[in-house]
């Protein structure tokens, strides 16, 4: 059973079982795969494809025949994908959007949560996305890979510099699971919590709920430890000063 993250002299540390570290590492790998899929889709749509990073297989294929059949089945959707992108480009032009200035939001709810719109105005969000989404994906992938590296060792020991990277990676895992579990509001989150408490783990959704609750707990302990490590500002560091006495609340 895992122990909470606790502050140490140079960072935080938690004791995790091997199966827990493997599970977390695999989940981080899944999020990397999802983000890389978006990178491929975006560069397929664009005229320039030379900036697409080489895809890196995370898990070794189970066996050669499964790999071959996956390759065979991948051919057909690739053609359809091409038609879709041509159509998307055409409909974007019809909508009066310049394809070169704007990038549309992903349709996958997981990706929408990982890569949210930067504006409530759709045109502004599309322009912003065109300029910033690829660096955001790269930053998230770098965190997730660092997290996988940190999860290799037991106990899991993170420095003050590494802790935010692990924290952001765990958060992206939670965002991914929450989208898969259909968590849209506080009552959905409560329902997931209840399902995990009831336990059983016989169906996939209960298992996902248990994993979500575990990652939530681990992230909470990590940031509680990191908040403890922050220098005490006496609760009131603002120049105006009024917030602490409650008069300006």
């Amino acid at each position: 059973m895992a122990t909470a993250f606790r502050p140490t002299t140079r960072g935080c540390r938690a004791e995790l079982e091997q199966h827990e570290r493997r599970l977390l590492s695999r989940l981080c790998g899944d999020v990397v795969t999802i983000l890389e899929g978006r990178t491929r889709n975006v560069s397929d749509d664009a005229d320039v494809s030379d900036d697409a990073p080489a895809s890196e297989p995370i898990e070794a294929p189970a066996d050669a025949s499964a790999d071959a059949s996956a390759d065979a089945s991948a051919d057909a959707p690739a053609d359809i994908g091409m038609d879709d992108s041509v159509f998307a480009h055409f409909s974007a032009e019809l909508a009066g959007l310049d394809g070169d200035d704007s990038l549309s939001a992903p349709e996958d709810p997981v990706l929408r949560r990982l890569l949210p719109d930067a504006s409530t105005d759709a045109e502004e969000a599309g322009r912003f996305r065109r300029l910033s989404e690829s660096s955001l994906r790269a930053a998230k992938i770098a965190d997730l890979r660092t997290a996988r590296m940190l999860l290799e060792s037991s106990p899991v020991q993170v420095t003050d510099e590494q802790a935010p990277m692990l924290g952001r990676a765990l958060n992206d895992v939670r965002l991914t699971l929450s989208a898969r579990l259909g968590v849209e509001d506080e009552s959905d989150a409560e329902a997931v919590q209840q399902r995990a408490v009831r336990g059983g783990g016989s169906d996939e959704e209960t298992f996902m709920a248990e994993v979500y609750t575990f990652v939530t707990w681990l992230q909470e302990t990590l940031f509680s430890a990191m908040l403890e490590a922050l220098p005490d500002d006496g609760g009131d560091g603002d120049a105006e000063g009024g917030a602490a006495d409650g008069r300006r609340a």
Binding site: G167, S178, A189, F223, G237
Partner: peptide
């Protein structure tokens, strides 16, 4: 949003924006 933890959000506001703990909490 229903996912991000209160402790996490407070920590981000304190460390990224440099808000005081009371301002970050507020």
């Amino acid at each position: 949003d229903p996912v991000n933890l209160m402790s996490y959000v407070s920590w981000v506001f304190r460390t990224y924006f440099g808000h005081s703990s009371s301002r970050a909490h507020e």
